[in-house]
């Protein structure tokens, strides 16, 4: 499946396992938070990369202890009007210092990408049927931002003499 990662269209290397599918011996996988917690030891030994999928009501504190294990955190936006994931992204970056890949999935549309990127998201699974090429343009909607966020820790007035 094609996704947007670091502002380019790439193939997703991860297999997204549901809770009943056995963990393969190798390869990149993601699991739900509950499976991450219940099969922690096993996943720590996994030879491929490991990621977790968070629901929109699961908080960064729920996953904070597992961060050293994780190469990817995926946060679901069940409806694009559900904005909790923006705070989740900022807290993972700003508060917990997570530096791996942060991916938005679910009802992800072009017009959210600018904000998501500012909140620390680096990859995006677009909603079905959406043009990824068109979506890439959205990162350039605005040339400047007033506030601090995960991508830029200083507000405008600390960056530029106005």
């Amino acid at each position: 499946m094609l996704i947007i990662q670091d502002r380019a269209i790439v193939d997703d290397s991860f297999t997204h396992l549901d809770d009943d599918t056995p963990i393969p011996s190798a390869g990149d996988v993601t699991v739900t938070l509950s499976r991450l917690q219940s099969e922690r030891e096993r996943l720590a030994q996994h030879t491929g990369r490991v990621g977790v999928r968070l629901k929109s009501d699961q908080l960064p504190t729920d996953v904070a202890a597992e961060l050293p294990l994780l190469d990817l955190i995926m946060v679901e936006f069940p409806k694009f009007t559900d904005g909790r994931g923006y705070t989740t992204g900022r807290l993972l970056r700003d508060r917990y210092g997570y530096q791996g890949e942060l991916r938005a999935f679910g009802h992800v549309l072009r017009d959210q990408l600018f904000y998501m990127a500012r909140c620390g998201y680096t990859s995006f699974v677009m909603a079905p049927g959406r043009s990824l090429e068109s979506a890439l343009e959205a990162f350039n909607d605005f040339s400047q931002s007033y506030q601090a966020a995960a991508d830029e820790r200083r507000p405008l007035f600390r960056r530029i003499a106005r």
Binding site: F80, T81, D82, G83, Y86, T87, R90, Q112, F114, Y115, M116, R118, C119, F142, S145, Y146, Q147, A149, P155, L156
Partner: peptide, 14 residues
Amino acid sequence: RQWSTFHPEFAFLP
């Protein structure tokens, strides 16, 4: 006004 304009975290509040 400037802080809230296009605030990326608070554009889709409840």
